[in-house]
Computed example of a mutant assay.
Amino acid sequence: MSVLTISDLRKEFGDLVAVDDVNFAVDDGEFVSILGPSGSGKSTILRMIAGFETPTAGTIEIEGENVTAAPPFDREVNMVFQSLALFPHLTVAENIGYGLVESGVPEDERRERIAEMLEVVELSGYQDRNIDQLSGGEQQRVALARAIVNEPKIVLFDEPLASLDRKLRQHMQFELQRIQEETGITFLYVTHDQEVAMAVSDRMLVLNDGEMEQLDSVETIYDKPASKFVAQFIGDINLVPASIVEANGTDVTVDSRGNRIHVSDAAGRCVDAVSLEEGADVSVGIRPTGITLGDPDREDVFSVRGEIQNRGYAGDETVYTIDTEYGSFTANTEDRSYDIGDDVTVWWPADEVYLFAPETETASVSDGGGEP
């Protein structure tokens, strides 16, 4: 069942179209993230759902009720801001229970519900502390408890973890996931941080210049991006200009400066996205995780020589930057045997290839290019 339905949503600020024809639905109990670069319209969508901005066009429904014109206090929605907006003159318990007081909930029930929320956010015993006595992560939990204590249909998050350091941000993202699963409340989370969104979301909505690029599961968006923008924004991708020199149904051979690779797509993974006719220009894309360095150990691969320009360590992987005739490539591999300045062969197989149509910037996936 959809708890939130957005239809043909549009928002104009003078001549600027901040949100253009956005349509999506969020099911009850889902954790959905809206992801996009700064200025993509994601926070504007959130503010319209909360009732802080009025749409220029379109409708917003919560559990089937049209709330497009309803004031914020008439919507079963709460919002957690980046600034958290906690009251510094109130205790932890008073902050959490503020909305209950405003709603006229009796004192005994308030105390019980506040105690329950403190337990959920793992702050039992903190009820009498002042806000300035809390760490950043503890303040985040108080803001979350305040947002969910009155059991709204949806909690909206506007980049609440942006000000935290990376370690605390990672900890809090999993806390958000845990609390959402425990409470069953629908979370709609706005961020430009791909790492956070991919870690916590059931589905992600990717925005670009106010328009929807793709709405799907984390895995599908990473493995089967619907556009070049999505492929480049969600993770990294290396691109090579090429053209189709042979076409047979959905099987094609692409050529780039004499380098050829045969892409077999019998399952229909290149349909409707790329022109599969001979002579058509395409871009061949490959995730850094799909690249191997060294001599190929299989046939039907695309390979090019290059020189290691940089390397860095990322846990179990080494991240190499390689200068090639096509420009700079990035490769993520477990192989740590190369040094800066080494000559190396960069290669990848056909089942790791993405094909993009340069004019429409729409992606077609031959196979998944690694794991998120």
Rank of each mutant, 00 (worst) to 15 (best):
G125H: 05
G125V: 07
Y126K: 08
Q127Y: 08
R129F: 03
R129A: 01
N130Y: 10
I131M: 11
I131L: 06
I131T: 05
D132L: 06
Q133D: 10
Q133V: 01
L134T: 06
L134N: 02
L134V: 04
S135E: 02
Q139E: 01
V142N: 01
V142Y: 00
A143W: 00
A143I: 01
A145I: 04
A145N: 02
R146L: 02
A147P: 02
V149P: 04
N150S: 06
N150Y: 09
E151M: 00
E151P: 04
P152M: 08
V155N: 00
V155G: 04
L156G: 03
E159T: 04
E159I: 03
L161W: 05
L161V: 03
L161P: 05
L161I: 04
L164C: 07
L164S: 06
D165Q: 02
D165G: 08
R166K: 15
R166Q: 15
R166H: 10
K167H: 09
R169G: 03
H171K: 15
M172Y: 10
M172D: 10
Q173N: 14
Q173R: 15
Q173F: 08
F174I: 13
F174N: 12
E175I: 10
E175Q: 13
E175M: 08
R178N: 13
R178D: 11
Q180W: 09
Q180Y: 11
E181P: 03
E182H: 07
T183K: 13
G184P: 10
I185W: 08
F187W: 10
L188I: 15
L188C: 04
Y189A: 14
Y189V: 13
T191C: 10
H192S: 02
H192G: 00
H192T: 03
D193Y: 05
D193G: 00
Q194K: 02
A197N: 12
A197C: 13
A197V: 12
A197Y: 13
M198A: 14
A199V: 04
V200T: 13
S201Y: 11
R203E: 08
M204K: 09
L205N: 00
L205G: 08
L205P: 06
L205E: 02
V206G: 08
L207Q: 05
L207I: 13
N208L: 04
D209M: 09
E211S: 13
M212K: 15
M212D: 07
Q214R: 10
Q214K: 11
L215A: 12
D216G: 15
D216Y: 09
S217F: 07
S217L: 08
S217E: 13
S217H: 09
V218D: 10
E219S: 13
Y222T: 06
D223W: 01
D223K: 14
D223L: 06
K224L: 05
P225C: 08
P225S: 12
S227I: 01
S227F: 02
K228C: 03
F229R: 00
F229V: 08
V230H: 09
V230K: 07
Q232R: 15
I234V: 15
I237Q: 03
I237N: 04
I237R: 07
V240H: 04
V240C: 05
V240W: 00
V240N: 03
P241T: 13
A242I: 08
A242T: 09
I244A: 13
I244K: 11
I244Q: 11
E246T: 15
A247I: 06
N248D: 15
G249K: 11
G249F: 10
D251T: 14
D251C: 07
D251Q: 12
V252M: 05
V252D: 06
T253P: 00
V254D: 06
V254E: 08
D255L: 03
D255T: 11
